[in-house]
Design a protein around this nucleic acid. Sequence first.
DNA 1: CGTATTTCTTGATTTTTGTCAAGTGGCAGA
DNA 2: TCTGCCACTTGACAAAAATCAAGAAATACG
Lengths: 190, 190
Amino acid sequence: MTALEEYINSFFGIIDPDELAVIADLFKKSSIRKGDYLVESGKICGQLSFVETGLLRMFEMTKDKEITQWISAQGYFSADLSSFLFETPSRLSIQAIEDTEVYSISKKDYLIIGELVPNWHALEKTFILRCFIMLEQRIWTHLSMTAEERYHAFFENNKALFNKVPLQYIASMLGMTPETFSRIRKKQVQ
Amino acid sequence: MTALEEYINSFFGIIDPDELAVIADLFKKSSIRKGDYLVESGKICGQLSFVETGLLRMFEMTKDKEITQWISAQGYFSADLSSFLFETPSRLSIQAIEDTEVYSISKKDYLIIGELVPNWHALEKTFILRCFIMLEQRIWTHLSMTAEERYHAFFENNKALFNKVPLQYIASMLGMTPETFSRIRKKQVQ
DNA sequence: CGTATTTCTTGATTTTTGTCAAGTGGCAGA
DNA sequence: TCTGCCACTTGACAAAAATCAAGAAATACG
């Protein structure tokens, strides 16, 4: 199984190998330079992408600051799902934190999968449901944990990210300021 | 269109009237007494329910307190989606805040819809995607707003709930203590 | 290399929110 | 009607987190 096929499998659930190959073939590899955008806010998110190497950051502007919503590393997908599926303008922007290679599928090709793979809608449903569960989990962390507890919970599951991503983005994603993040970090080391 | 059909339509998207009638027919009306449970944590959530009258509260225990995740009033559905669809034990409990009437569909009948309605999986996908978008929005409020701003944003869109629901539950759902909630409320009145 | 820029840290302070404890008021049920 | 419970409020205080400002460290790049 290729890396891309594994990424697809991990989000969409187990797929028949032949069908998986058909699906994977519709994804095209492309590169995004550090600082460049995969998706710009206000435009329609026209593709769903899996990260092969590099890092993508999803963020949204408020009147005075950027808020990072999510960071996608290898094996994760990146897209404004509602913009991609409903074809509405994206609220989010997606930017490469470093030079990044992605496998992307266009909306047109994505729709073709539905014709090629009999139970595709069921797989799609699984995919979105998994995304939903992740968000539920994330809301739970905001309702039940302090900033420090959120830090630790995230750290335990994403140690690798801490070496590669500007920490201010992780702070924002966890709902705290860079200063608070830095102080929690200091406590942990000592 | 019956009330139930409208509820279904509002979450699953526009459905052919004949199909809608078939779907609605699989829902059964039932009553839950104030204080009783529709779903208990640890068990599988066996049905998807729309509220006709009354109020349901979804909550989860931590080691020392209950945290309300969501309150469903008329026209809203209530279920632990991931438990219902994946048939995993529910983390959440769902309890009636007051005597409540619901239209519920069992998992068995829910699966039957897939055989009766050709594009059912596409509708299901829409449904879950809308739930996903609501959660995205909610995470945004935690990343970008103070407790007071969350209060106001929620109040603007859910004024009716404030007369009917114990306010401590709304406080919990917005991620603040009842005391903080009460103080924000006092400011707003003055 | 060295310099510029960005990112991160630190301290002092303020603001926000939580905790604890006491009290008020309404409402259900004997 | 009285009683007891529950929900809500209030005050005093403590803790958590944000803000502001300065400086240190890391990184990018000519």
